[in-house]
Design a protein around this nucleic acid. Structure first.
Lengths: 165, 165
DNA sequence: AATTTACGTCAGCCTTGTTGACTTTCCAAG
DNA sequence: CTTGGAAAGTCAACAAGGCTGACGTAAATT
């Protein structure tokens, strides 16, 4: 089996076959990636959409609804439905902005933190196992390829989150 | 910023922070991964479900409905709806098995091949660009981590497809 | 004072997943 | 040759989570 390798022109030699393997790897791996949280969410009558909201509120406490909208890339009606149930269930707290009172700043409650913990523990455990199985060099490559695969807009979002809160 | 690295016990030193970055990289990258096909499908009144069916029928011509069900991991009712429209639109041909006439063997028609081409060209272009940006070492690592992230069942499916038809 | 922004909500639609029940077709074992 | 069960297809109903469009309100900006 021919492996991808550098050529004299500094490019990679990439067959359609190799690219197809990468595509299918993404497909099957993403299923694994979401499988554990999905199982947990199912028992609590939540879905992936709730998970995403909880994740990014945890990640950036006090973030606004607009912020969340641009990160998640959904409509406000769609986000609102999810946020509504999280607020009603007491997992998320929404408070008016002090400086700009039109904004709503979102925080996880203790209950919300608990769910976030449970979900991210499961997801991290799988990620950790995969990292350990593949080794440190592979981890670096993994992140490089994923980053290169993002849309520029998404990459900006990703990099903004990556360092500062 | 501490990078993941080997420790004296042969394990990886992985902070929650590093794992979170990996998780978010998967999230944003998967969006990029599906963005181009999604745009094409939208103009043709199809969705991701159609793409997946077309992809795996192309990958394994003559595959049966049951086969497809186990690869895609959905119910037959869900798959059937998608398959129905593809057959009615003349993209997929379904024929009774010669040896076991209960089975339906699925093939892409010329029209189906054309759609598959269009979708996979777009997806491969992005994958190729990402691979080239990241380099050959990164590509190997990428595939290793993804493979390690799959459920064992999915990994079997993936490996079965990887080599032979 | 008028306009714009941020947010929330109502109503309705679509895709894609689900369960459950049922039929038809067919192979294979008794 | 009959029958049990597997493979496939179909109908009905439902839910999650996307979407658009329209409208309302409060607050900030011009």
């Amino acid at each position: 089996m021919a492996e991808p390798g550098p050529t004299s022109d500094g490019l990679l030699f990439l067959t359609d076959e190799q690219l197809r393997k990468g595509i299918e790897a993404m497909f099957f791996a993403y299923r694994g990636f979401t499988a554990d949280p999905d199982r947990i969410l199912e028992t609590k009558d939540y879905g992936r959409a709730h998970h995403r909201a909880v994740h990014f509120i945890h990640r950036s406490p006090g973030t606004t609804v607009s912020n969340l909208l641009s990160i998640l890339g959904v409509t406000k009606q769609s986000l609102n439905r999810v946020l509504r149930s999280l607020i009603d269930d007491g997992l998320v707290r929404s408070e008016k902005g002090k400086v700009d009172a039109r904004e709503r700043h979102l925080h996880l409650t203790d209950k919300g933190q608990m769910l976030e913990r449970e979900l991210s523990d499961a997801q991290r455990a799988r990620m950790r196992a995969a990292y350990r199985a593949a080794g440190p060099q592979a981890v670096a490559g993994f992140r490089q390829v994923l980053e290169a695969m993002m849309d520029p807009e998404m990459r900006r979002q990703y990099n903004r989150l990556k360092e500062g809160g």
